[in-house]
Simulated scan of single mutants.
Amino acid sequence: MIVAFSVAPSGSDPDGGVSEAVADAVRIVRESGLPNRTDSMFTTLEGEWDEVMDVVKRATEAVGRHGNRVSLVLKADIRPGRTGEMQGKLDRLEAALDQQP
């Protein structure tokens, strides 16, 4: 399964800065050992249901320590028996783009 999620505190910093809270969440993802990628909008990770959801939960709890409210957006691609799909999906897209005139 692939999960893309975004987690941020709300109600904590009057200037709207969330970098430290998000860094705490991303640190948990990276330390999980699961394949992952972070961009400006989402963190994506791949693994089995229980291990992925555990990481999302721990990342959300870490962000929660920075304020009294947390926003979590999550999207999942659930394909039992498939692995390596974070890169595999991109490889298939690039191949399709290469075939177009």
Rank of each mutant, 00 (worst) to 15 (best):
G64I: 09
E94T: 13
E85N: 13
D54G: 12
V55Y: 00
G16T: 10
G84T: 07
R37S: 06
F5N: 00
V18R: 03
I2G: 09
V22G: 07
E94D: 13
G17F: 08
E20N: 07
V63M: 08
R37F: 09
D15Q: 11
P9T: 13
G84K: 12
S32K: 06
G81T: 12
E31T: 06
D50T: 10
M41Q: 05
G64M: 05
D24T: 01
L34T: 03
V26R: 09
L45H: 00
L72R: 05
N36W: 13
R92F: 04
V3E: 00
A62R: 07
R30K: 13
D50V: 09
V29Q: 00
S6C: 12
A96K: 14
Q99I: 00
T83Q: 08
P80A: 14
G17Y: 08
M86I: 15
G17D: 13
R65V: 01
A95L: 11
S12L: 06
Q100G: 06
H66N: 09
D13S: 15
F5W: 02
I28Q: 01
I78R: 14
R69L: 12
V26N: 04
R30T: 11
A21D: 09
A96R: 15
R79A: 06
L97S: 01
E31S: 12
D91M: 08
P80M: 10
A62P: 07
V52S: 01
A76E: 11
S19H: 02
A4W: 01
A95K: 15
R92K: 14
G64K: 05
A95I: 08
R79L: 13
G88R: 14
I28Y: 08
A62Q: 01
V7K: 07
K57P: 00
T43H: 04
R30G: 10
L45V: 03
V56C: 00
A95C: 01
A96H: 11
P14Q: 05
K57I: 03
V52K: 05
S12D: 12
A25V: 10
E46P: 06
S40K: 04
V73L: 10
L97I: 15
D98H: 11
D98L: 14
I78L: 15
R82W: 04
P80G: 10
